[in-house]
């Protein structure tokens, strides 16, 4: 303890603390920034006889916000006509059931009771209420069958303004944000396009065909699987992080080094 106390008053101590804090921040960011995941979530298709079971699940988990027969309340929109695809997207990404009401409902780990089977049952029930977009088949969202080059053109024209060219996401108005696409499964990407969850606009199948959507999925998957040749992508959000790192870590380090090299030693018996 005495050693620490003595060193605390060392002229370089504040720089050391600053450097330590910066290093911790960097390491923390690297540890918690989203990583690519294996994108193949098994999506089973809903069945008609699931409607009854889905209704029971809906009553116990969704009714308080979305109202009886999903007609909507002040706390939640109507689900009539949103389709099974919307239910599958919202529940498989953990956004629903929502826990807190904020600017935007975030992706989160699934609650223990949410299984793919239960999602399918609720999806079948919501589908039975007023139709809507259905869950895409495995073949429709297979990135291997899409053309990333063609998908990239569409992605760059319609998606990157919000989601960033590498799918890293970005800020919107009043606390809303376009989420990172790196943790989305191909099915979730497809479902988001056809249902337009939260602030996202709809890209329906008649203007962007299912084949073109598969191309876009292929593009997103191929981009996120790419290696960063520099060793570290810095979140792939472009010049902002690169500039921050260069200025704070790079130039900050140089300044600290210059201070250390030229620091005059205190001489006790001067």
């Amino acid at each position: 303890m005495t050693r620490i106390t003595a060193r605390r008053r060392h002229p370089l101590a504040r720089y050391a603390v600053l450097l330590l804090a910066l290093a911790l921040l960097g390491v923390g960011y690297a540890a918690f920034s989203p990583k690519s995941q294996s994108a193949d979530a098994a999506i089973a298709s809903g069945k008609v006889d699931d409607v009854k079971a889905g209704e029971e699940l809906f009553k116990s988990h969704c009714l308080s916000c979305h109202g009886p027969e999903a007609r909507g309340t002040a706390d939640g929109p109507t689900l009539v006509g949103v389709g099974a695809a919307a239910v599958d997207f919202q529940m498989s990404s953990g956004r629903m059931p929502a826990t807190t009401v904020g600017a935007q409902v975030p992706r989160k780990p699934l609650p223990a009771w949410v299984t793919q089977k239960k999602i399918d049952q609720i999806a079948a029930y919501v589908q039975s209420l007023g139709g809507g977009p259905t869950v895409p088949s495995k073949d429709q969202v297979d990135p291997a069958k899409g053309d990333p080059a063609k998908g990239g053109e569409l992605f760059r024209a319609n998606c990157i303004s919000c989601h960033n060219w590498a799918g890293a996401g970005g800020a919107l108005t009043q606390g809303k944000y376009a989420p990172n696409l790196n943790s989305s499964s191909p099915a979730q990407i497809y479902e988001a396009m056809i249902t337009g969850p939260q602030a996202m606009p709809v890209f329906n199948d008649s203007t962007i065909t299912p084949q073109q959507k598969r191309d876009m999925i292929a593009y997103i998957v191929s981009v996120r699987e790419q290696t960063d040749p520099g060793g570290f992508g810095l979140g792939r959000i472009g010049p902002v992080t690169e500039g921050l790192v260069a200025w704070i870590v790079g130039i900050g380090g140089l300044v600290l080094a210059a201070i250390w090299i030229t620091a005059k030693r205190r001489q006790a018996n001067d």
């Binding site: 569409l154 760059r156 329906n204 203007t207």
Partner: peptide, 22 residues
């Protein structure tokens, strides 16, 4: 026409409220 594919757009196809297209 759609940016990226060059296909013309039928008004009847671009019919979902909340839709956006460049």
């Amino acid at each position: 026409v759609v940016e990226g594919t060059g296909q013309p757009i039928r008004a009847a196809d671009f019919n979902t409220p909340g839709g956006l297209l460049s």
